[in-house]
Design a protein around this nucleic acid. Sequence first.
RNA 1: GGGCGCAUAGCUCAGUUGGUUAGAGCACUGCCCUUACAAGGCAGGUGUCGGGGGUUCGAGUCCCUCUGCGCCCA
Length: 863
Amino acid sequence: MTTHPTGIPEKPSLDGIEARMMGHWDAEGVYRFDRTATRDAVFSIDTPPPTVSGSLHIGHVFSYTHTDTIARYQRMRGKAVFYPMGWDDNGLATERRVQNFFGVRCDPSLPFDPAFTPPAKADPKNQVPVSRPNFIGLCKQLVADDEVAFEELFRMLGLSVDWSYLYKTISDQCIRTSQQAFLGNLSRGEAYQHEAPTLWDVDFGTAVAQAELVDKEMSAAYHQVAFARTDGTGNIVIDTTRPELLASCCALVAHPDDPRFQPLFGTTVLTPLYGVEVPVLAHRLADPDKGTGVAMICTFGDLTDVIWWRELDLPTRALITRDGRFSQNEPEWIGSQAGLAAYAEIAGKSSKQAQKVVVEQLRAAGAMLGEPRPIQHPVKFYEKGDRPLEIVTSRQWYIRNGGRSAELRDVFLARGEQITWHPGHMHHRYSNWVEGLNGDWLISRQRYFGVPFPLWYPVDEHGEPDFDHPIAATVSRLPIDPSTDVPDGYSQVQRGQAGGFVGDPDVMDTWATSSLTPQIATHWVDDADLFGRVFPMDMRPQGHDIIRTWLFSTVVRAHYEHNALPWTDAALAGWILDPDRKKMSKSVGNVVTPMPLLQQYGSDAVRYWAASARPGIDTALDEGQMKIGRKLSLKILNASKFTLSFPTPAVGVGAGAGVTEALDQAMLARLALVVGDATAAFDGFDYARALERAEDFFWWFCDDYVELVKTRAYSGEGNPAAASALIALRVALDVMVRLFAPFLPFVTDEVWRWSQDGSVHGATWPTAAELTNMAGADANADALGPIGEVLAQVRRAKTEGKVSQRAVVEHVVITSSSDSCSAINSALHDIRDAGSIRAFEFVQSDADVVSCVVTLAEIDTAT
RNA sequence: GGGCGCAUAGCUCAGUUGGUUAGAGCACUGCCCUUACAAGGCAGGUGUCGGGGGUUCGAGUCCCUCUGCGCCCA
């Protein structure tokens, strides 16, 4: 050991510690990934790339700290830690911000304009159309500032990221990865296109995948509508919440076992207003208890309509168009002039407007019974959308994910079994989702900004695109943008011409790119050497709310591309709740920004709060915990100052060298147990338990052990008992600082540098063996219990006597078992000095409890 | 309707294969300037472990059931 006593400040302080340590870490490259390491010596982390739109909130600090503690632990265990950061600067959030900020909108049909400058003053109502490359340029410009702020925050928080491996989802590398993976899926038949009814957000103008759906309780009303039987024997009355879709009606349906309707199956009725003849059919999904027990099937009102349409082989009578309005075209299935006239009144109207009109029309025709009855029912929304989804028929790209194949579903369920989940029960969320899939993964979006499909379509002699024969880009040309790039063998002038080509206008869903973060971070497409060293990865940290999206889709892509899991372990973080235990979200307006908290309490203190939360548990924001973290950091400073202010003891080499006192040996033995527990906890990704063990020990160490050995430690050089204390103090401090290093990287490195060269974050994780060696074979951690008990009882007597803890004790009678008595006896001098005790008396008993009768010395009142 | 989780002190939470008298921090109260730390230290009270039943020598812990809350899915 070397000593730098001059490095210890007179009054240790946490002020400015973040900037000071960050300076060291940058200069020394403490967190640089060693890319000469082979796969077995690497620990690699698939960091969630935060969405760069607006600001970070305290939830980021929370979960990223959890990951960082594990990264730091693995680094100290000798692993080359591959811990990159990514920015998710692609996607809808960025697209919307750019539109509003610059007053532009993306039009992929326009050519790139190198001289383009955005309008001086943004006019959101009069957006200037720009090409996709220009639009992407503006996106990059806008997110640049945010990314600087994000990096600053994460550095301030002390994340041990190697920033030289930073990736951005908007980058060419990401686009290439995404396109190359898609082409692989296409060539192997895992991706396919299909024309089908699709859930559609009319405001965003795009199809939406199953994983992005949310149910919202909506007010609606049942309307009773009478259909006349074609045999003239009366009416069938149905209940519907969407009477405006009557023109799309292609059948009525009731449950096959419902006796009320059994005689009617196979007969036909006429739709009111339009007079279209439709059959009455049976299907098990018709609920006899809902409304009148018979429903009308429209193409398409909801997902059940789609099932009925498919399974009952009904005609398509879709009228809602992609903008959410009723088609202007006359429906060809309406034969009568009166019917067409009725429809003309809703053509071009939105669902809501049309409903009013149709209800009036039904009333006038006498086909509506009674008044609408209000109900609450769940309605499908796009998770980012504001209006209920419609269902429209369109051509889309899909990736097979088991939603249409039990065999494939089993493959992905088996993948889920192979992942180690933290906490374990999160596995159920995955299985539950995979088992409930009801369609393949829809990856195409009718948006402008995002990763374009690397595809063109030939245009036939009539000028119609031939979607069944896509022209795929060659991999060596990636990344490409089909709206500006030209397929091999064609020229730009043939774009959109008969005999020429058109680019695929769609972009991929953001999850189609996000599902490839392991491939992106490890540079699958452009650095095979790195990829071989860090893939498959070790750890995926993420929120439990996106198991069905991010986690599952990542498993799907890695399975197809590499026939492997993307990582071995998935660590699911809980949510951050506000102090009232409500989930923090932008829409609720209870989001807390982290920087002020980092500044007020210090980064270590905020990290302490985060690391105190059990893995996967939703946790309330608690500034009280941050105060405790700050207190702990200060205590580490002061305890280190105390320990290191003694002259450096001469430490012998080998077992038991220099640690001769039983109390010191027992302390080291106890610490060895703590190290064992903390190591086991970290190996199981349970950072919180590791912290708790270290912390418990540390407070006992300060409160009891240091008080016990203080006098002996001061007793001078040349005294072997004093040297024993000094060595034990040094060794314990050294180990404790390393135990705390993953949690409190700033304060631990500060005190480490007082006595050692280099950073604690480059030091090796402590082992129980190094401590048990030093403590020797006779060390007995159990002796510490009775010793602490005596100390506590002496202190209590002084407190009750309302005297200073320095007050002298005349004598103490200790009654306990012989084991306890000998334990106490082994540290008797230390107890005597710590308690200022003049005399002891021992009484042996059978009881295992230690009881002390403390007699205080007469107080000298002559002050 | 199905699945998962949670329920322990006033508050926030530990309590790992069942095992002494169920713990910590915060809050509250009192004492103490003690040469690492007053942004500190020491000491103190508080529990029908959600209800009921069962297994066991022994249950906060395992099983059943009920209640309440949260999340995911249909």
